[in-house]
Every structure is written in C-alpha cells, then in structure tokens.
C-alpha cells in the first residue's frame, strides 16, 4: 500500500508490505523492517531496523508511538513523548465522528481562526484584506486573566473578521478567516 505523509512541509513516500505483525516499509526508496504490535486503539509498539546501509544491520530500535487527533483536528503521532504533526495522503483535518472540515493548518484552503476558550476579545490586530504571514498575531482574547494571542497558521489574506473588540465570545466562536 502506498501512503504520502507530510511532516513539517516535507513529504515522505511510503510503501508498506505486510506479513502478520511484520512490515517491510519503503520510505523514500529505503526499505526498513518493522514489527508493529498494537497496544490499544491509539498506541503501538514498533521495533524498527536500522535504515539502509548500516554498520549494525541487525540492530532493532524500540519506539512507543501514540496516535491522536489534536483540538485543531490535526493528526499527531507521539514518538515517545515527542509530538509530531502529520498529514496523511493530503488530509489535514480529522475530527470526532470523522466530519471533514477545513480550517487551521499549514496547508491550502481557508484558515478559520476560532476562540479556543470562552473569553473576551481585547484587540483585533489585522484589517480586512490585510496580507498576513504565518505566526503573525491576529487577535488577542483574554481568558482566565491571561491575554492570549491567536496567530495565523500560514501566510494568506484576511478575508473575514468576525471578532469585535470588547465582545465576549464562546469557545469555538469564529473570529477571523484567512484565505
């Protein structure tokens, strides 16, 4: 089976051949032997062979991995305790009940910036039609006595502003859309 997995803007092409718990995985053309044992619905134990031409071809490295969908709907693979955001076959958003919805993320399509918690809009930092860069602060929401900056997930243009300064918002309220 063929998969395309994008991590941090880099695409890895993966071909998997299965034999029970054992997998031959070609990752960008280099084949590695994997044993994958399922722990529960979200967690796996992997034994991974050293890549390609290794000094120690018999070496088997153990990894505990856990797979989940974060609040923004992105698929996250924890390798040990290190979270890695992944995009599988171009799919950016996963959600409860598997409803597809476009939104925040580093990809194409509109980015919908929503309030992550109930609070009050303190400042709107961008204007309609403004060109914004990834990580640029867009709006400041005060919650639990802390001011929280919501930032652009990627470069784009502000197409909609629903946030109004001084107005209280519920969790999930749409504040800004970036095209």
């Amino acid at each position: 089976m063929h998969y395309e997995v994008e991590i941090g803007g880099r695409l890895r092409r993966i071909d998997i051949t299965r034999s029970g718990d054992d997998f031959a995985v070609a990752i960008d053309g280099r084949t590695r032997q994997i044993t994958a044992t399922r722990i529960d619905a979200h967690q796996w134990s992997l034994l991974v062979s050293a890549p390609g031409k290794s000094d120690t071809p018999g070496r088997r490295v153990t990894y505990d991995v856990a797979i989940s969908v974060d609040p923004a709907g992105a698929l996250t693979v924890h390798v040990g305790s290190t979270p890695v955001a992944v995009i599988v076959n171009g799919r950016r958003r996963w959600g409860p009940g598997d409803k597809r919805h476009d939104g925040a993320g580093a990809g194409s399509g509109p980015q919908r910036v929503a309030a992550p918690m109930p609070g009050k809009v303190v400042r709107v930092l961008v204007a309609q039609g403004e060109v914004v860069r990834a990580r640029q602060p867009l709006v400041v929401v005060e919650a639990m006595k802390m001011e929280n900056e919501l930032r652009a997930g990627r470069d784009g243009t502000v197409s909609e502003i629903h946030a109004r300064e001084g107005v209280s918002v519920e969790a999930g309220a749409l504040l800004i859309v970036i095209q």
Binding site: R12, V25, I27, A36, S68, V77, V86, V88, W94
Partner: peptide
Amino acid sequence: VEDVAAIAAAIHTALSAPANGSH
C-alpha cells in the same frame, strides 16, 4: 523520529478499523 512518525501514521491508517472514529 519523523521517519518513525511517518511509518507509524501509515501503518495505523492502514490497520485502523472503522469503529475508531478518527480514521
């Protein structure tokens, strides 16, 4: 670590049953 994450994501996607709502 990213290689392992990519491999795990691919294997998990391939083997996850539809009962797992995320996949």
